[in-house]
Design a protein around this nucleic acid. Structure first.
Length: 304
DNA sequence: AAGAACTCCTGTTGGC
DNA sequence: TGCCAACAGGAGTTCT
């Protein structure tokens, strides 16, 4: 589910509700997600969350003892926050897990003790943050702040898709590359934060075929083409629109759950195979193809 | 070396 | 109605 705008929306929701809180306890309900949970995860008890940053699609929670808790939502991860008074009553028929909050008979719907609630942070004021991830593609890691720059998941990441990043920067990376522009956009070494959906949408806005070779967007002298300029504009516009859409629902803690999902307005092409291209003056039909094992949606008529 | 394909997992959807 | 294959999604790993 989450691409950069969704992760940013979750970050903002968490900032409002957990920055400044002290972690009283960590409840772990399974071994790990994609990777095992860090063996010292429970040692974050007693620290406070002092800041929450985002890098690419990673959330970075700065702890008061100088360590960083890294969280990636994978494809189905979400956080649900409960105030102390919202914690559901324990079900006497269900044994507590890990000495933590007993599973509730409401667990499946509230996020408490549900089958995919893998860990939770219990704060000293009695509130909770529950991490739920049915597909378990998420990642959790813990390391000292000084180790961040060399972290294997972070050190090879490309630039954030916002200024000063621009078409010249993107052009330098794409020069000579034969890979399709769509696949290039999904490569986090090229630019971070753009996932399958927004890559399709940005290419549609820029009227560029996802099949076009990346190198054809760069002139021989290394300068960006008009297409490349349109593409960077398209990426930045759609990400900004999506963040705004997420932000508009932030009052409600539901957005922290990720329930807001992708910003709700209709996508122009994503998931719309067989439907008419919504671009002005275009009479084409949206088509679905597979690139690098991922679905691409585009209009062969207006996207060249 | 670059690019494509495969892999992890599970809930949902579409076709027969 | 029931069964099952296909699909979705991020990114590390493996293959070509």
């Amino acid at each position: 589910m989450p691409e950069l705008p969704e992760v940013e929306t979750v970050r903002r929701g968490l900032v409002d509700r957990v920055v400044g809180r002290q972690i009283a306890r960590v409840v772990v309900r399974r071994e790990g997600l994609r990777f095992s949970f860090p063996s010292d995860l429970k040692t974050i008890a007693g620290t406070a969350i002092v800041r929450i940053r985002r890098r690419a699609k990673y959330l970075l929670l700065d702890l008061s003892d100088g360590r960083v808790l890294l969280s990636h939502l994978g494809m189905s991860g979400r956080y649900t926050l409960f105030r102390a008074e919202e914690v559901p009553p324990p079900d006497p028929h269900v044994a507590p897990v890990d000495g933590g909050v007993p599973a509730s008979r409401f667990g499946e719907t509230t996020g408490f003790g549900g089958r995919h609630d893998h860990f939770e942070l219990v704060f000293s004021d009695g509130s909770h943050a529950v991490y739920t991830d049915p597909r378990r593609f998420g990642i959790l890691d813990l390391f000292a702040a000084e180790a961040e720059a060399a972290h294997p998941l972070l050190q090879h990441l490309g630039p954030e898709p916002f200024p000063p990043w621009d078409s010249e920067a993107l052009g330098r990376v794409l020069s000579g590359r034969k890979v399709s522009i769509k696949s290039a956009l999904l490569n986090q070494k090229v630019v971070v934060g753009v996932g399958n959906i927004y890559a399709c949408e940005a290419l549609h806005r820029a009227k560029i075929s996802p099949r076009r070779q990346a190198r054809t967007l760069v002139r021989k002298d290394g300068r960006p083409t008009e297409r490349l300029t349109r593409l960077v504009d398209g990426i930045q516009e759609i990400l900004a629109d999506a963040i705004d859409a997420g932000g508009s629902t932030l009052n409600d803690f539901a957005s922290v759950e990720g329930a807001a999902g992708y910003f709700s307005q209709q996508f122009a092409v994503y998931g719309r195979a067989g439907q008419p291209c919504p671009a002005a003056e275009c009479s084409g039909t949206v088509k679905r193809i597979v690139q690098s094992n991922r679905s691409s949606f585009y209009c062969p008529r207006c996207q060249r």
